[in-house]
Design a protein around this nucleic acid. Sequence first.
DNA 1: TATTCTGTTCATTTTTCCTTGAACTCACTG
DNA 2: CAGTGAGTTCAAGGAAAAATGAACAGAATA
Lengths: 173, 173
Amino acid sequence: MNFVGNQNPDQLSDIERELIAFFVNAAQAVGLPKSYGEIYGLYFATEAPLALDHVIERLQISKGSASQGIRFLKSINALNSAYLPGDRRDHHTAETSLRRIADGFIRQRIRPELKDGAARLKEIARQSSNSPSDIVHERIDTITSWTKKADLLFPFVSKFLGKAGPSHNEPTI
Amino acid sequence: MNFVGNQNPDQLSDIERELIAFFVNAAQAVGLPKSYGEIYGLYFATEAPLALDHVIERLQISKGSASQGIRFLKSINALNSAYLPGDRRDHHTAETSLRRIADGFIRQRIRPELKDGAARLKEIARQSSNSPSDIVHERIDTITSWTKKADLLFPFVSKFLGKAGPSHNEPTI
DNA sequence: TATTCTGTTCATTTTTCCTTGAACTCACTG
DNA sequence: CAGTGAGTTCAAGGAAAAATGAACAGAATA
């Protein structure tokens, strides 16, 4: 076991490892690469802004993984840019607002998926015009109503996540 | 192109292929095997109850895949059992209520994930008691509030999906 | 109770996805 | 304007997940 309060810059403490494991698990649950979870976990466990090199060194992952992971996490607003005078490297910190991250994730990963699902559906509907089968038309109506519901759902989810938690003030919406 | 209205039992029509493709895509979006999407798509496109053999023959997939896929789909309530007198085989039809399927999926796939996330978190909190780092405690509080929100979110989603669609009567909640 | 039929299991193969690291671009610096 | 440093790209290799199909178990039939 590590020395309590270990601040050795190139060695993860027990608690850091646990936090990272938590996010690795979460990442896999939503279908993201393990490395993305590791990276976010590291940022989440660290108050100070970190650069690419830090991530590579502390997590022992490749430059490519770290670069792609950071870029993705930025793209969904899970990481915020931080400016450090006198350092050419880009630094980031973890975004801790669940709503912001969820919004980014939905916009980046879910919506495009839904959108091309809708396009696909439109094509199906077009083709179905010369299908004599009643069931086909009925089922196409069913999916149409599904996609409409899904479209309405996300703003509600976002608003829901923006609400204050059970016992805390959450000024950051 | 297929003859319009093709009912050849062991050949998929264009529209069936399109519908199946739609669900294959959807399955992959939520991290399920492609074959599960194929199977649900076939049931969705077919009014009559189908047995394992039909799935194998029409989709040209292995017995193992079909068996596991059907079982999973039943477990999340995406397929309903149908009784056909004089036939020993189990038959099923597609469930078309989005709410029912979503509820089943959440109960089967999401909740267990959240649950062991919570367990993991508890362990982290325990270990953190001897961490002097303020940031660690703060971040653990953050995750705790996240998991509480997530817990409240799902019933909300379920209720939302149960509502009638924009322009249709939806007696089936 | 032997036989057939249905569905499950799981070791192996196949496929898909993730990670790696060397080569590259671009910007800053001396 | 050559040299250094930071971050990106992507082909290749490796790891993880899915599909396969043969062996199996159990229930219905004869």
